[in-house]
Nucleic acid binder design. Structure first.
Length: 594
RNA sequence: GGGGGUGUAGCUCAGUUGGUUAGAGCGAUCGCCUGUCACGCGAUAGGUCGAGGGUUCGAGUCCCUUCACUCCCGCCA
């Protein structure tokens, strides 16, 4: 092939027997028998066992080399005897008898071993990321990521989409996350912002007449990290389409997702046609707008039960009188579960900051009755009603939460996950996609009582536009949707508002004057006034798709060079201080934090 | 900004109720070993127990402060 190798470390087989070859790679592992040395040579493509005996003049030197030294081996391909074949390796039927070797790259003592399945502290992995990335699992994850992205590009092109780049240096926008700012040298005192998403640009692409756009788009948000959320930057499959309705966007994304997940995973997609669940239904049945549909548990509304005379659960009744609501989860066939299971859930709920979960199991001798700490407060008629509402059976249990709507949504949604997990109700070999639709256009901030856009301010409200009742903004629904898989929010999207007058009206509800809208969204609002096509789109998160495919819980496992939780790159030492000269040129001075 | 977890040898970890000289495996170094594939066997080196302060006759262990990493809440239209 060239002066370094004739083959890679993953390709030689019995067919190459007796060939003289050369390989280059890292010393993955040595097994030194004193007079006989086995050496596993590794590159991106695989591992090949090399063999040298003590009669060889270079034996003593080779024996001393550290693991991870990069060497070139010239040798002969030999067939292994039947009893020494390694079935784990593609190259396991052969080995290389070393004729000569040469060091290409020395190594210092390793701060972390490459050949090991152990877990390592994040700090050391990030500082020596180039070593970490040599390890098998993460190496394969990164290769998977590359292949998925490449597949997405080719599928999107087949679907008639064109990929365009949009600016990285753009303007700060008032909505949404904190911006990363970049000072402008030529415009002292002014700043660019890195895009939180190419939202306005992709709409401008539509107004520019390009019809179908996509981009593997870098997005920058200065917000705190989570296990599934990189600090700083992440990638979206940004999509926008002209002259479409919601269904057309769904069709493209469903087609694409099914192709990706079938190609890159063996796990089964439960719903070939992704279920569509309205936002309000999702909040009721699952307590969240990103439900894990692999989990069969459903939340039911039981407030009415606590208004009955024949229910004497006074704590809940009192709260209901003062406006609280009661919802609960039915857990099937739990009559044989030990008391510790129920108490464990209750204790867990209290640890989550809730006031706990009341529970009882439905039993029947002559009459229906509740077994458990609060069971005695329920008449058999009220239990019958509970069973009617929730389709529960004798032998099932009810976990009840009482409180404000958003509080009990939160705790019951967590309880669904917790109980589903404990009772092993979740099939981890499946993907359950769904669409969440009909998001409200606005929401009320409970602290400030101010009305805000609940998602994207550029979404199109539903219904006849001339009849739009702006006096009751919280009732307005938007053509706004999310796609969710296994409880992971992959993306949100919307049919956009392409009518400038309507845009001003909606922004005014959220407290923005026409002048402010003109100033903040000048590029887009201006473009909307010169013949804008109806359009809409979506932006599935690439990182989360890869996480689902790789079965990883942490986004760093599928990111080549991630930052730590404090948004620092420990390998490159970013962020870092800059010189006085650099600051001066940018007309900046830094206030030292005390 | 708030809450939880972790921090002991290069790496992964153990260390009991506060009590002698802080241990193991891997790695490193040296020696032995011709069929291993997590090779095996023996020896040696390697420690600011994250840092600082306190309690105590005595602190890896208890208390306070602080730092780092991580998970979660807030935040992420």
């Amino acid at each position: 092939m060239n002066k370094y190798r004739s083959h890679t470390c993953g390709e030689l087989t019995i067919k190459d027997k007796n060939k003289t070859i050369s390989l280059s790679g890292w010393i993955n592992k040595k097994r030194d028998h004193g007079n006989l040395l086995f050496l596993d040579l590794r590159d991106n493509y695989g591992i090949t066992q090399c063999l040298i005996e003590n009669s060889h003049p270079q034996f003593k030197e080779l024996e001393k080399l550290s693991l991870e030294t990069v060497i070139k081996v010239d040798g002969k391909v030999s067939e292994r005897s039947k009893d020494t074949v390694n079935k784990e390796l593609n190259t396991g039927e052969i080995e290389i008898s070393v004729i000569s070797y040469k060091i290409l790259g020395h190594t210092k003592e390793l701060p972390l071993p490459v050949f090991s399945d152990q877990e390592y502290a994040e700090e050391i992995r990030l500082k020596y990321r180039f070593l970490d990335l040599r390890r098998k699992k993460i190496h394969q994850n990164i290769i998977l990521r590359s292949k998925v992205i490449s597949f997405i590009r080719s599928e999107m092109e087949k679907l008639g989409f064109l990929e365009f780049q949009t600016p990285i240096l753009t303007s700060s926008s008032p909505e949404g996350a904190r911006d990363f700012l970049v000072p402008s040298r030529l415009n002292p005192g002014k700043f660019y912002a890195l895009p939180q998403a190419p939202q306005q640009f992709k709409q401008l692409v539509m107004m520019s007449g390009f019809d179908r756009y996509f981009q593997i788009a870098p997005c920058f948000r200065d917000e705190d990290a989570r296990a599934d959320r990189s600090p700083g930057e992440f990638y979206q499959l940004d999509i926008e389409m002209s002259f479409v309705e919601q269904e057309n966007v769904f069709e493209v994304v469903e087609t694409l997702m099914k192709k990706i997940f079938k190609k890159f995973s063996n796990k089964k997609i439960i719903y070939e046609s992704f279920p569509k669940i309205t936002y309000s239904e999702a909040m009721l049945k699952y307590g969240t707008d990103k439900p894990d549909l692999r989990n069969p548990l459903i939340i039911n509304e039981f407030t009415e039960i606590f208004k009955r005379e024949d229910v004497s659960f006074e704590i809940f009744k009192k709260l209901v009188k003062s406006g609280s609501i009661v919802r609960g989860i039915i857990v099937k066939n739990t009559k044989d579960k030990p008391r510790s299971f129920f108490d464990g859930i209750d204790k867990w709920a209290k640890e989550q900051g809730a006031s706990g979960l009341a529970y009882f199991t439905i039993e029947k001798d002559s009459l229906l009755k509740g077994k458990g700490p609060v069971g005695k407060f329920f008449s058999s008629e009220s239990i019958e009603k509970i069973m009617e509402i929730s389709k529960a059976n004798v032998g099932d249990s009810v976990f009840l939460a009482c409180g404000k709507k958003n509080e009990i949504e939160k705790i019951l949604s967590q309880a669904r996950d917790k109980i589903g997990d404990e009772l092993k109700l979740i099939n981890h070999n499946t993907y359950a996609f769904c669409w969440i639709i009909d998001y409200p256009m606005f929401e009320k901030d409970e602290n400030t009582k101010k009305i805000n856009f609940s998602h994207n301010p550029f979404s199109m409200p539903q219904g006849e536009l001339k009849n739009l009742d702006i006096s009751n903004p919280l009732e307005i629904k938007a053509y706004q949707y999310d796609i969710v898989c296994n409880g992971v929010e992959l993306s949100s999207g919307a049919i956009r508002n392409h009518i400038p007058e309507l845009m001003y009206k909606l922004f005014s509800i959220a407290g923005y004057s026409k002048e402010e809208v003109d100033k903040k969204f000048s590029g887009m609002i201006n473009a909307l006034s010169y013949g804008a096509p109806p359009h809409g789109g979506i932006a599935p998160g690439i990182d989360r798709i890869i996480m689902l495919l790789a079965g990883e819980k942490n986004i760093r496992e599928i990111t080549m060079f991630p930052m730590n939780q404090n948004a620092q790159d420990l390998m490159m030492n970013a962020p870092s201080e800059v010189s006085e000269d650099q600051l001066k040129e940018l007309n900046l001075s830094v206030k030292k934090k005390k």
